[in-house]
Amino acid sequence: MNVGLAIFWKDVLIEWRSRDRVVAMLLFSLLVVMIFQFSLPGGASADTQVYAPGLLWVAYVLAALFGLGRAFTLELENDALSGLALAPAERGWVFLGKALANLTILAPAQAATAFAFGLFFALDLTAVAAPLAGIVLLGSLGLCSVGTLFSAVAVRTRFREVMLPLLLLPLLVPIVSGSVRATTVLIATGSVPFEPIQLLVVTDVAYLIVCFLTFDYVLDE
């Protein structure tokens, strides 16, 4: 567990100093919102609110792909990845530390994107901010768990920028499906639906367990 916390602290500290990934994800997701504004018939407005939850999660997934793709590149410099693999601990803790750091680094971009969506789509999200944050957290947990695993797999391949989305996107179907359905119902009714949340929780738990157990093999050369 200490290994996971040490890695979390290290990743967040490095990101705090450079702000590379946070700024890149933030700008990227805001650009995605702008593209939606111009691509929707009549632009993003109260009339197109029905698309907002799906588009919000498309922006989240794209921003996460952008950030997750770089999660392990910092470990390549000076072969620091070997330093993590050498730690005499269950390597699943390395995964958990990295996944938690990715989740934390993704959060500011998600908050800003939600704010931008609220403005563009004339949605008042303040009343549902807390449950929406909960749904985003559940969705992002699954996203960051498989994303961290496949980021570690892809980083040693020749075409890592292509490999990560190819490996990751099919596995995000239950996460995106549950998150979009939960967000849609929340925005429409103000209440949190049980079924999609159940799907998210089950998927998160399954992904976390599988990723924790398989990370040992990912770090082996």
Partner: peptide, 8 residues
């Protein structure tokens, strides 16, 4: 390689 993080 040094296994060190340059930013730290």
């Amino acid at each position: 390689a040094t296994l060190l993080y340059p930013a730290l």
